[in-house]
């Protein structure tokens, strides 16, 4: 029996996509679930201004939360580097893109660089490795494929939404959980030549629909296959139909053998 691993989970100040209210980021709650599945000693880590909802992570299976208090305009990176330096976590878990800041998803990478940790992105499952201080990571790839990686700890792993669903929120668990408030490090964000304005959704590019085409044509372009209209077999005998279908499936490469 190995000693339980020390795992830190980075929690960001999420917002509900519809209501805009403060809300935990689902993938970070999934990260808590992955850490719990490892039987790890878990600590939540949040750097930001005071917020009620950050503590909601305690309801999803987290026992302890360290809240580093910094101002609205401060960069959380410095506070997190300092805190993780003292926490001595073997594993740092984070969502792919934290919320509450610029949503660039750069923070885990910058943090890992500063702490000298390797980054493994998009974990959907974690297991202890065959040797001490190694970790088996199942990485989610597009189209349901997976990649099994073995990494040496300590490491920073970001979690993919394909990880198991988070534990449902338990009100009493949130009530029981402990929040440690600490002062963070004030480090104002550097100025960048970026203009900011209210978000305006941009139309997604629709291939093949010419400007000025009729509504019916645009709908067709939106729902039609990239390959365009295909072959039609009218009332073939079932055997012939089956042969044609299998040949076609083989042609496009979805059927092997």
């Amino acid at each position: 029996m190995r000693e339980p691993m020390n795992v830190a989970v980075l929690l960001s100040a999420g917002h509900h996509p519809v209501s805009g209210r403060a809300c935990p980021v689902p993938v970070e709650m999934q990260a808590i679930g992955l850490g719990n599945a490892l039987g790890a000693e878990m600590t939540g880590l949040h750097a930001g201004p005071a917020s009620e909802t950050i503590a909601d992570a305690l309801g999803h299976g987290l026992a302890r939360l360290v809240h580093l208090k910094i101002g609205e305009a401060d960069d959380p990176l410095a506070s997190l580097i300092a805190a993780l330096g003292t926490e001595k976590s073997a594993l740092v878990l984070a969502g792919r893109v934290g919320q509450g800041g610029e949503d660039s998803g750069l923070l885990p990478y910058a943090l890992a660089r500063a702490l000298g940790l390797p980054v493994v992105p998009d974990a959907s499952a974690l297991r202890e490795g065959p040797e001490p201080s190694t970790l088996l990571v199942e990485q989610a790839l597009p189209r349901g494929a997976r990649r099994r990686l073995m990494v040496r700890l300590p490491a920073l792993v970001t979690v993919h939404p394909a990880a198991p669903a988070p534990l449902p929120f338990a009100y009493a668990a949130r009530r029981r959980g402990v929040v440690e408030e600490r002062a963070g490090i004030a480090s104002p964000r550097g100025e960048r030549a970026i203009e900011e304005r209210a978000y305006r959704p941009r139309p997604k590019l629709i291939a093949k629909s010419a400007a000025g085409a009729s509504a019916a044509e645009r709908l067709k372009a939106a729902t039609e296959a990239a390959s365009g209209g295909g072959r039609v077999l009218v009332d073939p005998p079932p055997e012939e139909a089956a042969r044609e279908i299998l040949a076609h499936l083989r042609d496009i490469g979805v059927l092997r053998g």
Binding site: G14, H15, G20, E102, D103, S104, I194, E196, R200, R202
Partner: peptide, 13 residues
């Protein structure tokens, strides 16, 4: 341009 802050602001440069 890119969306930021939970798709509430747009950054442009």
């Amino acid at each position: 341009t890119r969306p930021a802050a939970g798709r509430r602001t747009e950054q442009r440069m």
